[in-house]
Computed example of a mutant assay.
Amino acid sequence: MLARGRDLVLRLVLSLANNGRVLIWAILADYVVCAGAYALLEDKGPISAMWWAIVTGFTVGYGDLYPESTAGRGIGAFLIVTTWFLSLLAGAFITARAVIDADEFSHEEQEEIKASLRRIEERLGTLPPQ
């Protein structure tokens, strides 16, 4: 059971880390869901709740709005941790796309190299059994 949960979390993290659109939607959903929960738990309006979520998520913490209930504080803690994690993934995603390796082979070049190696192995008679 634990291994299945770990695999699910790993698949989720890899999906977020390798798909910019999914990552953006996850960040937006994090803010909207936490703002909605805050609005319900603390009896605040949607604009005030979204303001709280943005200020809390960016860890600015003006102090003008803050949760007074234990559940509201839990939502705030959750928002801070998830925003931190998603920000790390977003930074890594942007950095990975910004770094360009001039020596990197294209997909077509890699396939051509693999085919050439297969032909060489066939001629030498060293083709591994399949």
Rank of each mutant, 00 (worst) to 15 (best):
Y31K: 06
P128I: 05
N18M: 10
G36K: 03
D64L: 13
A71C: 04
L10P: 02
R4I: 14
A49F: 00
N19K: 09
Y66C: 00
F93M: 07
A26W: 12
D64V: 14
G125V: 04
V13S: 05
E112F: 02
L117M: 13
K114H: 09
R119P: 00
E121R: 12
D103H: 09
I24K: 12
W52G: 07
A90Q: 05
I80R: 03
A35Q: 00
A92I: 11
T126R: 10
E68V: 06
I80W: 02
H107M: 15
V60F: 13
L23H: 03
V9N: 06
I47G: 02
E112L: 08
L89D: 04
E111W: 10
A98M: 09
L40P: 03
T82L: 09
V9W: 14
V60Q: 13
Q110R: 12
N18Q: 13
T82C: 07
L23A: 08
G36C: 10
I120W: 02
A102G: 07
T126G: 00
R21P: 07
E42W: 02
V9T: 12
R97T: 05
A35R: 00
G63P: 03
K44Y: 08
H107K: 12
Y62S: 15
D30W: 05
Q130R: 14
N19H: 14
W25K: 11
E108M: 07
F78E: 02
G72L: 08
